[in-house]
Design a protein around this nucleic acid. Structure first.
Lengths: 112, 112
DNA sequence: ACTAAATACATTGCATAGCTATGTATTTAA
DNA sequence: TTAAATACATAGCTATGCAATGTATTTAGT
């Protein structure tokens, strides 16, 4: 068993998948960044680094798939909430279709 | 719908996944590179570029997950056949476990 | 009261992998 | 005879995850 290979591979596998995960979570309700990290860890056991998530959210915004809004708190640091756009929803549908076909075909290979 | 985003995303999603696919296919029998491209296209509809596969196979070999052997043909160009190693098999089991957990958790997010 | 941890955002630089383009060489089909 | 297919390979570009680092506020522990 090649531990180093597996470690690097796990990082590579996350590329692209994290955007899929974030968009799907934002499709349910609005989240702020720090909250998303916890939510993703709870749902997928993926420990997403802050240095990964914040640039990711900026990319999604620049692609017009999400919007962001600063929200002051009664107590504590202001939070930047993200919401999915109409374009984000239609794009997400395409991603989910691609993902489903991909996982189904890989399923066939791993179990035959 | 953001076509450009989707196009880039599909490339990113393949990172890591292609190694999983190749190792799983090699787990059944030996293949040569050019043959793998066709096999992957048939099974997964993923059109893998030659410039992607050959470096990938070299990486797998350098990680001792596969072996390669030149095989002369009665007619035509010699083929370099790849076979999975013992280390490759145990590593692949780990990758498949990670992959199954990952896809199962994403499944929960996309359908809730 | 002081300190460490948690919360909440962000950026820089590195390592890695997919893709296009290009190259070599042989064989087959038009 | 020319184009396409077979079969291998590499260079450079682009994009993303991650560790490290930074700022600032709030909360919990001693």
């Amino acid at each position: 068993m090649n531990e180093e290979f597996i470690h690097k591979w796990e990082s590579q596998v996350k590329k692209g998948i994290l955007e899929l995960v974030v968009l799907n979570i934002l499709n349910n309700r609005d989240y702020y960044g720090y909250e998303l990290i916890e939510e993703i860890r709870n749902y997928t056991l993926i420990d997403i680094a802050e240095g990964t998530l914040y640039p990711l959210l900026i990319r999604l915004k620049e692609s017009n798939l999400v919007l962001s809004e600063w929200v002051e708190q009664d107590s504590g640091i202001p939070r930047k909430y993200y919401s999915i756009t109409m374009d984000g929803k239609t794009t997400l549908k395409e991603l989910n279709i691609y993902w489903e076909n991909l996982t189904r075909s890989i399923q066939k290979i791993t179990t035959r």
